[in-house]
Every structure is written in C-alpha cells, then in structure tokens.
Design a protein around this nucleic acid. Sequence first.
DNA 1: ATACGTGCAAAGTATTTGCAAACGG
DNA 2: CCGTTTGCAAATACTTTGCACGTAT
Lengths: 145, 145
Amino acid sequence: MATTSWTDDVFETLRTRGSRSGSARSAIVELLGRQDCCLTALQIFDGLRAEGKAVGIASVYRVLESLVELRVVQQVAVGDGQIRFEPAHRSGEHHHHVVCDGCGKVESFEDPNLEQALHQVEARIGYRVAAHEVVLHGACAACAD
Amino acid sequence: MATTSWTDDVFETLRTRGSRSGSARSAIVELLGRQDCCLTALQIFDGLRAEGKAVGIASVYRVLESLVELRVVQQVAVGDGQIRFEPAHRSGEHHHHVVCDGCGKVESFEDPNLEQALHQVEARIGYRVAAHEVVLHGACAACAD
DNA sequence: ATACGTGCAAAGTATTTGCAAACGG
DNA sequence: CCGTTTGCAAATACTTTGCACGTAT
C-alpha cells in the first residue's frame, strides 16, 4: 500500500514548505520513520547517539516541535510526566496506547469501534477537535501477578 | 445519592489504613474534594497558599502520590508536560478531558457510549486495565477563529 | 552572501529526595 | 515517647532559550 513512506512524505512536506535540509532533522525524521510506537525526546536523543549521530538535545526538541506544528508528528502523554512523539500518518490509520504501570512499557492498539465512539463525541462537544488520544493504564501479562 | 462525599470517603480510607491525620494532607484532600476538574500539583499548591494554608510543595507531591496509590485520586496527562490530579470517585462515574491548544483550558465531558467502547477494548487486550483516560485536543469556541 | 539550522551551555520549570523538626496517637 | 507527617532546601529530570557558528541554497 505505502507507495510513499512516512519518512518520504515528511521530507517532501519540508521541501514544499521551503525548509532547508539539516543533518539533525534528517536523522530524527529517519529514526522516527523506523518506529512503530511513541518515543520520548530523550529516547530519540539516545537512539541517535547509539547510531553515531551526535545531535544536540536542543535540536531534538526544536525539530520535534516543528514536526508537531506541521502535524506530521503527534504528541502522546501517557502520564509519566514525559511527552512522547510518534509519526502521524496521513491516513485515518491511527492507534492508541496502553501503559504498564508496573514496568513502564508502552504498547499500542487499534479499535475501529472506539474510533467511531470518539468521532461521535467530537461532533457534539463545542470544540473543533484536531486530535484525540486514549491511554489505558494497567498491568501487562508479565507484571500482573 | 452521595450520602458520603468523596472527601469523607478519603478520610475514612486513610483512617482505616492507619494513617495519621496531618494538616497538609487534610488541606489537600479538602481542596480536591471541592474541584470538579483536574488540577496540577502547582495549582493545588497555589490554591492552598491562597486560602492561607502554607503547605510545602514537597508535601503536595508526597500526599498526591499516596492518594494515587490508594486509588482515590487519578492522574491525568493532557500533554503539556504537567501531571494533573483529580478525585477518583468510587462509582463508575467518570469523565474525560478536552484541552484547548489555543488557551490551555481543560474541560471535562462524559459519554456512556465511549465508556462502553473502552470496556470492550479493555476486555480484549492482554492487560489487566486499572484505569483509562481520553484526551481530546482542539480549539474551544473562543479560540476557533 | 545570507538566512536558516545546529550545538553548546545556561536558564527555567516540574518533580523528587534527604533530613531535622513538628506533631498525632 | 515513638514513628508518621511535614517543610525546607538541595538535588534531579525534563524542556526551553540565547547565542555563535556552520551550512545549504
């Protein structure tokens, strides 16, 4: 299906917008494109270090901020005081998160039925809703006694 | 319906658990009991100051942590990097949050249909789900142009 | 050449921890 | 009295900002 990857989409969007291509941003976009779930800014920073790309932490935050503004990256708050980031795919394709309060693991899930219920809510409250986010908290199979 | 208020419930729970009653915790529980929506730790701190109860910020965090552990207070993350807290009522009574990305306002809403969809999801994923949280992001009536 | 992008370091904000004094039972 | 609770201050964690330099166009 994906004739164009998220990564390519983002580079295209940036080019269209007239942004210059910098090394920090390229590295971050490429790393994010390889992820299937959300990462904290520090995880991204460490991940880049691990592959030898020593970008500054400030650049990580600045790049993420700009990508959020372009709506190609979505912020996720799971309640541990850190903000996480993940690719926002153009299609309605969309997932939510379940957090293990025991080990801190974050996983994702999808549910069309839930999406539908969310859309109904969004239609009736007096907000122009731009995004939504569902977080389940509990114990994963390993942490549940 | 509420023959006992949340505040009383909490004091009762604390007593049962053998906790001593301290001034900081009492003040925090009472303030929370008067709220209808979530507050940050700092908002609670300032609120207490405003009414002349000068508790230490450390106590605010420690008390909130213990109340979360007792499951009488629920944490809410709306994505601005701060953790919010609100009373967790025994009954299934339960609300979710909508955040205005323009002015930062946080409001609450309820939707039985959404709750049902959530329960269905919770039943099918391999987690023992203890809590769930839905956050909508968008522009409120005032901030939407 | 000239902005934009980046990295470093410093500042800012939120939260946690160590410890001694205050206090309830 | 004894141990929990509290407040202060210091420490930590995460994020933002200021500024000078590098670099793509």
